[in-house]
Design a binder for these strands. Sequence first.
DNA 1: ATTTTTGATTTGTGATCACACTTGCTTTGA
DNA 2: TCAAAGCAAGTGTGATCACAAATCAAAAAT
Lengths: 269, 269
Amino acid sequence: MITLALITLFGFNFIRKPKTGQKPGMHKAAIERTNETIAAQLTPVGRETVQDRVYSELRRALIGGLFEPNQVLTIRGLADALVTSTMPVREALGRLITEKALEALPNRSVRVPPITLERIDDLLRARSLIEGEAIALAATRMNPRQIASIEAMLGEWDEMRALKHKKDIDREATLNQSFHFEIYRCCGSAVLIPMIESLWLQSGPCIRVAIYAFSDAGEVDTAHYHRRIVAALAKQDAQAAREALVADISRPFAFLRDKLQSAAAKDQT
Amino acid sequence: MITLALITLFGFNFIRKPKTGQKPGMHKAAIERTNETIAAQLTPVGRETVQDRVYSELRRALIGGLFEPNQVLTIRGLADALVTSTMPVREALGRLITEKALEALPNRSVRVPPITLERIDDLLRARSLIEGEAIALAATRMNPRQIASIEAMLGEWDEMRALKHKKDIDREATLNQSFHFEIYRCCGSAVLIPMIESLWLQSGPCIRVAIYAFSDAGEVDTAHYHRRIVAALAKQDAQAAREALVADISRPFAFLRDKLQSAAAKDQT
DNA sequence: ATTTTTGATTTGTGATCACACTTGCTTTGA
DNA sequence: TCAAAGCAAGTGTGATCACAAATCAAAAAT
């Protein structure tokens, strides 16, 4: 019956005419100019709803691996933790479920998706494909200023590693994320970037498990691979950039894969 | 402050222990057997929430191109049309916005994303990349029974076209969708398929515009390209399948592109 | 006649409540 | 002693309401 209702959709009142695109108040030139100069100095404040904040927070937590795989989340529990009502949380959870960042069980409870071997391989393949394409596109489009920007991040990385003995994993993960997305943002595709974000969201809980284990041996390699990526981008060599990127993101997945397999083998005995 | 609240997340009551996976009632063997025979005959009823139905309906409408680009949708309007309250609709809209199937304007109103040249090229590139990969994977995995299944759909297509003079565009679009997803489902990737669905959702409003215009000249070509795809799959030729698919999905985009460019040129004069 | 202001209507957002379902524990019965 | 029924607490879903912001149309002012 819902189907029937929708067939007769056109002409109903939920269709609002698209805006004409014309600015309505194109009148006194002087006032207009005054407003423009003001607009040039002020940055738009931009409303942010509670739901948006909840959503971003949950995203951050997922990508950062603050939630473990298989962990069950409840609306009221999260609402308490975030100090809001249930409403923004339930909408944010629904959005994360459609992105496959969370999983809706038949009981109607929601949990962080579990890690399986197939899923790991599946995620790695998808990420190599899409992020590889994005970096290949970016390689031909990045200007020297943008290259310099990510090179600066590399420097910041070294500096952080040199100064602090304590491994600040959260900081490192954030920096890694910024490094990658700074590059992807240059690919010029408004379609690919949300897909990459979705993939990071899905692989977040997985790779965090790996990162914790590898901080010592992994760090130097990470810097090495990132340098390779920057070098390829500087030469505008799309193919080399793609390969360096795939090598970079493959490592934690391969590590996790081995760990899972050996765990399964030990479980078998 | 929300950030601080989340940092202290672990150990809170919203973490529920994952289920043990053990069936609790593993007792009298006779009763167990009786229940199993009953279970074998009955199919699980499976709850479907109102929100799910609304979401599916809106998806169907978007992929089918029932909404025009730039069209503004309102929660209450849709709720009236679907004969529910606003609650399921607003959650469904939120989910569609995160998938980029709809667009949230700064006014907090939501609309179908507009068509631009860049967006068309962007969508086509992403679809070629991902659906191409999916079909290449499927080519090496489809068994003869699955091949026969999509061949049967080809036959159904011819039959439909031969019998009806009237172009049943909705039916045709549905069949086209089934044809493609039947193939993609064989690629064995739980990650790629939702991404493809998301891409169809985004390109739905665009390509519908094209399909309306090309039904006459396009139909025979469509059948031709689909046959090429099936032939390549039957030979397990991944590369040929990918090329045939790209050719297939490129046509409506190219058509739309020309139409848009000529419209822009005419607008210029 | 055009622009601005004002007021009424519409719209999205968040909170709260009622209901149905699940879950875990206690009590009952064999 | 142990399985099964019963009960109570907790959870997701949908409806309704209050409020602020946006939109639109008419009235007022220049």
